[in-house]
């Protein structure tokens, strides 16, 4: 594909781009529109809100909003738990992946196979025993009670992604730097860290998305705002009265939790794609 495009090719690319954009973004736009409908317009049956209203956002964000406490505590839990689970996973995985990429030791394949096995594990299968154990040792409905199982989601993929990244780092640079008179620490910091950091960061991003997405653990292992994450909390929203549907509030909350995802994707699309495809450090 040359750099000069024929008119036909240009038209084709325009069409393809529009189709992809609409397909990928439409549901997001759809719930965005719903979130701006006033509660009396929720059933209007239109795509656009008949009147633009921010009442749903007031409900979840403004002080005194009926779902504010519920939503903000869930947001705090989700961010905190996902971040901690990500950090732990990335630290453990960095050590592990370094060993796999640079050292030769028996059991390497066992570790990689285990990571593979854990990553395809049906989450629902282990939620019952965890629930039972957590009740007995007091981890039920606590942050650690979610962080630990989240490691089963974040750790395997971190190990895989990072091993791939580390394998592509030209470790000779470190020796070269040492030959040039740098101390081992300097060599590591100047030569290796800049090469490894993007990989670690990308891995953290991917791991965070996974933890952020969890629903099964979130609804099974929590029961109060002490640890309940956002996806689980959405089921607790309530409308103006006991029986009314919380469609608007859920949509508004959904939009709020989607914004960071979109921002991260826009900023780091290149890194995420390379992290998920090649593990290459293309810079």
């Amino acid at each position: 594909m040359g750099s000069v495009l024929s008119t036909r090719a240009k038209v084709w690319w325009a069409v393809i781009t529009v189709v992809v954009l609409v397909g990928a973004l439409f549901p997001v736009v759809s719930i965005f529109m719903t979130s701006f409908k006033a509660s009396s317009d929720i059933n209007s049956g239109t795509f656009l809100p008949p009147r633009w209203s921010t009442e749903n956002y007031e409900q979840i964000l403004a002080s005194g909003g009926s779902a504010q406490e519920l939503f903000l505590s869930a947001l705090r839990n989700s961010i905190g738990i996902s971040l901690i689970a990500t950090v732990i996973a990335v630290v453990l995985a960095t050590l592990c992946a370094y060993a796999i990429a640079r050292l030769d030791f028996p059991g390497k394949r066992l570790i990689l196979t285990t990571a593979l096995g854990v990553s395809i594990f049906p989450v629902v299968s282990i939620v019952t025993p965890l629930f039972n154990l957590w009740r007995n040792i007091g981890l039920y409905d606590t942050w650690p009670g979610l962080i630990i199982p989240y490691l089963s989601l974040t750790l395997p993929i971190s190990i895989w992604t990072l091993s791939a990244f580390f394998r592509q780092i030209p470790w000779e640079l470190e020796q070269a730097a040492q030959v040039d008179g740098a101390t081992p620490w300097q060599a590591f910091r100047k030569a290796i860290v800049p090469l490894a950091a993007p990989g670690v960061f990308t891995t953290a991003l991917i791991a965070f998305f996974i933890a952020w997405n969890d629903f099964v653990y979130g609804i099974s292992l929590t029961s109060t705002s002490a640890a309940r994450p956002v996806p689980a909390a959405l089921a607790f929203f309530t409308g103006a009265s006991y029986f009314e549907e919380p469609t608007g509030a859920i949509s508004a909350a959904a939009v709020v939790v989607t914004i960071p995802v979109v921002v991260l994707v826009v900023l780091f699309q290149r890194q995420i794609v390379s992290g998920l495809t090649q593990g290459a450090v293309k810079g």
Partner: peptide, 30 residues
């Protein structure tokens, strides 16, 4: 539900043919 978990483990390795390695290219557990 964790669409990302499994498969992601795999792709990173595809493009790594050219990846140099200071250790064995073909690690084994024996």
């Amino acid at each position: 539900m964790n669409a990302q978990t499994g498969p992601a483990a795999e792709p990173p390795t595809h493009g790594r043919h050219a990846a140099p390695s200071t250790t064995e290219d073909r690690p084994t557990d024996r």
